[in-house]
Design a binder for these strands. Structure first.
Length: 486
RNA sequence: GGGCCGUUAGCUCAGCUGGUAGAGCAGGGGACUUUUAAUCCCAAGGUCGCAGGUUCGAUCCCUGCACGGCCCA
């Protein structure tokens, strides 16, 4: 189906389709399979950037890319051609091409993909330019591109047609490339530290490893419902039981919940697990992983280790002005927040209220990279209890530019206590908590074979990319964010 | 899920608390052989998100819906 929104666009499209048909009649393949061996624009600039205005290089070469600008002068035409590395000017003249050759160039439209052979020279105004000797169409652009000076500003349009966003908005490409550089840097650190990258199931008979509602799907062969994973955690720990000792996975997780500026239903999570280590070791590695990612993304945030480690209790006390752990009384915390006009309707337990105080008073204030440590056990069903502090677990979260970027802990490896935590979750589910963790007997079976002391970390790649590129919406760092179908 | 805001030409945007819409770029025609947001001349381009309502008359006011954004949950 071809969607055309107006007669204007239809007219442009008809006109360009007619050009394609005319090319075929003239024996020119409008969509050839082969591209001449070509130089990338950045390489041409690197080789010839020193030419003086008016100077000839004496060299000829091919470039290929999209036509992004055109300035006609009757018997000559200036054009701009862009590939992924940059933009270069073309000069097509009647003298060189003859009338038919110049007509072929004049028939091109902004957005066409072409290959051009020409002589490299520097124009009188000092612009590196290719004097066109051969012009070969590679792919016709049938639709007008977004306006070149203002780009594509319509947010919905940018997400639904990301290819246009990437073509005309420099920032879109910058963020996409930064994200890839971050993932590559993360792999570099972990591979260098002797970690094994693994793949665990995205289709799971029981979901787990987090507090979230899952997507449910149907596997016909087994006549059973399966879940799309909400986390990798429980499978990666099975591999720790299996003796792999250092494993990581970078994978899509799926959570069946609302969208917001920091939530997309599918998102990318890095998790790593390290045997014979605790959360102190995990924090040090987190510092190194994030610092490497920041360097790769060109971030100007100072990520140099070590980052401050502040007990969660102290951080809340200092920022909010209330000691959340003086007792475990939900009512005291709720009353405190209500006095400040904070909606506490979702705070059904003391631990929820602590988390709310954290996200309301503390998280937005943590600009510099910071670890908060030692969380209530109720918020952390897979973390090992703190030997020194009853009711707390050895857990940390890392924050930067007012955003959570990492979460880790010393892993609970006592199968009896893990079973008790599952039972508590089952009670919460029975009481109506739709995000409560389901019982997982198969995981408990693995723990009963003995999991060494282990530290684990999860880093949301999307949020890390947001922090390191300075954007506010998760949809800016996901090439194709989940949108309601039109 | 709730509140607020937005939706006008292919793109970027104007549009006076009601009288059937304008500009720039892109596209079309013409001039121009060193321009680079080229310049100049001419002409064209609209389901004002969708559906109702109020009104003599609605892009404008009201209601509902769709999609999106921001904030809250």
């Amino acid at each position: 189906m071809v969607a055309v929104s107006s007669d204007v666009e239809q007219g442009i499209r008809d006109d360009r389709i007619a050009k394609v048909e005319a090319m075929r009649r003239d024996g020119v393949d409008p969509y050839p399979a082969r591209t001449p061996p070509r130089a990338e624009v950045a390489a041409v600039r690197a080789d010839h950037g020193a030419l003086e205005p008016g100077a000839e290089s004496g060299q000829s070469l091919w470039v290929a890319g999209r036509i992004t600008g055109r300035r006609g002068h009757g018997k000559a035409i200036f054009l701009d051609l862009a590939d992924r590395t940059g933009q270069i000017q073309l000069h097509a003249t009647l003298d060189v091409l003859g009338s038919d050759g110049l007509a072929a160039v004049a028939d091109s439209d902004l957005g066409d993909v072409v290959a051009v052979h020409g002589d490299v020279f520097c124009s009188r105004r000092g612009e590196l330019t290719l004097r066109v000797r051969e012009w070969r169409p590679l792919a016709k652009c049938l639709r007008p591109l977004p306006e070149k000076h203002h780009g594509l500003a319509d947010v919905e349009g940018r997400y639904r047609q990301r290819y246009l966003d990437l073509l005309v908005n420099d920032d879109a490409l910058r963020i996409a490339l930064a994200r890839t550089a971050i993932v590559t840097a993360v792999r570099g650190v972990l591979d260098g530290d002797g970690f094994t990258e693994v793949e665990t199931p995205a289709l799971q008979p029981i979901y787990g490893g987090g507090a979230a509602r899952p997507f449910v799907t149907r596997y016909n062969e087994y006549e059973r419902d399966f879940y799309l994973r909400i986390a990798d955690e429980l499978y990666l720990k099975r591999l720790i039981v299996g003796g792999l000792e250092r494993v990581y996975e970078i994978a899509k997780d799926f959570r069946n919940e609302g969208v917001s500026f920091k939530r997309n239903p599918e998102f990318t999570m890095l998790e790593w697990y390290e045997a014979y280590a605790d959360y102190e070791v995990a924090m040090e590695r987190t510092e190194r992983v994030v610092a490497a990612a920041g360097a790769a993304a060109g971030s100007e945030i100072d990520l140099a280790p070590p980052w401050p480690r502040i007990p969660l209790r102290d951080a809340i006390h200092e920022r909010a002005g209330i000691d959340p752990m003086a007792d475990r009384d939900l009512g005291r915390l709720v009353a405190f927040m209500r006095e400040r006009d904070i909606d506490t309707s979702a705070d059904v337990t003391w631990a929820h209220a602590v988390d709310h105080l954290l996200s309301h008073f503390v998280e937005p204030a943590l600009e510099r990279p910071t670890f908060l440590v030692d969380y209530p056990v109720e918020l952390s069903p897979f973390a090992k209890a703190s030997p020194a502090s009853p009711g707390l677990v050895e857990r940390f979260e890392a924050f930067c530019v007012g955003m959570e970027i990492a979460n880790g802990y010393s892993e609970l490896n006592d199968p009896a206590e893990q079973r008790a935590r599952f039972e508590e979750a089952r009670a919460a589910a029975a009481a109506g908590d739709e995000e409560a963790h389901p019982m997982d007997e198969d995981f408990l079976l693995a723990l009963e074979y003995g999991m060494p002391p282990t530290a684990g970390v999860g880093i949301g790649i999307d949020r890390l990319t947001m922090a390191l590129t300075g954007v506010r919406s998760i949809r800016e760092v996901i090439l194709f964010p989940t949108l309601r179908p039109r």
